[in-house]
Structures are given as structure tokens and as C-alpha cells.
Amino acid sequence: MTPLTATAVGKRYRTRWAVRDCSFSLPEGKVVALLGANGAGKSTLLRMAAGLVRPTTGELSVFGTPLRGRIHPDVSFLAQNRPLYRDLTVRELVRVGAAMNDRWSADRVREVLALQAGVDHDAKVRTLSAGSVTQVAIAMALGRLPRLLLLDEPLADLDPLAREETLRIIMAEVADRGTTVVMSSHVLADLREVCDHMLLVDEGRVQVDGDVEEVLARHRVLVGPVTDESTVEGELVSATRTQRQSTLLLKDAGPAPEGWAGAEPDLDSLVMGYLRASRERRASAQRG
């Protein structure tokens, strides 16, 4: 049973579509990177998956159950602004979590909080560092013993040490419980090394969806003379050209023709290629 399935999901805010016609199905037990520029629709997608926002069109299912305006019991959600009661102590906050949930493991929360150095359980949340706040928020999310963990920009605003600690908490959850994790980020470097599945959205649409290795293996970067692009086979994603040289990102490319050099792209150039392509489409659409 797939943790999260979207079928033609769209969300319109007044006149603007934040997400449109999104269809995908996430594999179980994977770490999914939800990538895209700021405002690409990542947060809206996650908030819909968490049952906070109802889609305007289409339907989302979590573990086979269609969402009906409230969170699925097996899902935990970390919002981008880390909403926590700031006047409560960590201990009180955890107790609030217990009070608001049918299934709750205080042990799990304690365990997660113990993974990091020194969050004082009697400290008020407002006195904690950004890193500690994120980690407490994640600990609260894990207290629900989720099978699907939705994290909106979990690493934003964290210093390198806190980033490492936070990733360790998330990865330990994957190792211990086989939880499926969806993490969004507008900074690719944050997720490059930890994801095994990617979902690239831009302009509210899914651009790339698949296992990272497989996606990379299906693409080629070809560099060759600008005058002779006709010999290149494959589906052109995007291209950058100088006076003499073309750099092409291709999907399902044929072998590199004479005079061209080919290589598998790295994740950065793949993502950049797709984002550039969608930006160009948008620009040309605006020109009419």
C-alpha cells in the first residue's frame, strides 16, 4: 500500500493555482526529496497531504484511505514555521502532545530528544535555539509513531551542526521503523545525499518523479558543437548554448554522436536543467 498517492490534485487560492494536476505515488520506506523553488507549491502539497488544506480538484490518499479534511492517523507533519506553544516548557509541550493524540509514545519522544546534546526539558520553548526548536518539533511528530513523516523545510535556518543532528534523527527513524519520509527543500544541497526518491515540482506541477539513481541513469548531459545538434537523439529537457558549444540535458538519450561528449548528470545539473526549462516555458508563455 503506497504511503501517499495523488490523483490529478490541484489547489487554487482565489485566482492562482498553487498546485495543479499533480499525480504521483510514493514508494514505501523511502526518503523522498520534494524539490522546487520557493513558491513552487511544495508547502501546499504537503499541507494537503497532512489534511490541513483540501484540494480544489483531485484526491489524495494516504495508505489507501482518501483524505477528508483531517490528518491520517499514521501521518505526522512538521510545518515550515515549526508551530509549537512557545510559552510551554519542553516537558509540558510533550504532555500536550500526549493529550492530543490517541496513539502516543512518550518513550519515543524522550528517545529522540536524547539523541541531541542538551535540550533542557524544563526550558521554555521560546528560549531554545532554532535547531532545538526543530528537533523538539520533530520529536513531537515522531511521538505519534507515524508511518509517513511529512517535513516542510526541516533543515531551513539551521546551522551545520544542528542540520547534521536533525538529519541523524530523521535517518534513525527511517532505520528503526522503516518510516517513509517526505522532506521538502528549496536548497538541493540539503537533501542530495540523503534522498533516494525525488519529486521535483515547479509552477505547481510535477516535473520529475522517481528513484534518484534511476532518474539520473535515464538522463545524459551531452556537450558538443552548437552547429550540429541534429545528430543528437533523445528527448531534450533543456540546453545552454555559447557561440560554439551546446550543453544539452537529455532524457532517454541515444549514444553520444561523433564530436559529442556524454556523461550522466549529477543531481544538481538535472534539477537545474528542469527548473531552467520550466522557467523558459513560462517566459515564452508570457510573451504569448
Binding site: 520506506g29 523511502k30 541523524r168 535517518m171 534513525a172 527511517v174 540523503v194
Partner: peptide, 10 residues
Amino acid sequence: VDATAVNPNT
């Protein structure tokens, strides 16, 4: 994971 915070699937 404890030592390096990498993805256990990897």
C-alpha cells in the same frame, strides 16, 4: 546513521 547521518536505505 548514528555516526554519519546518512540515509539507511543507502
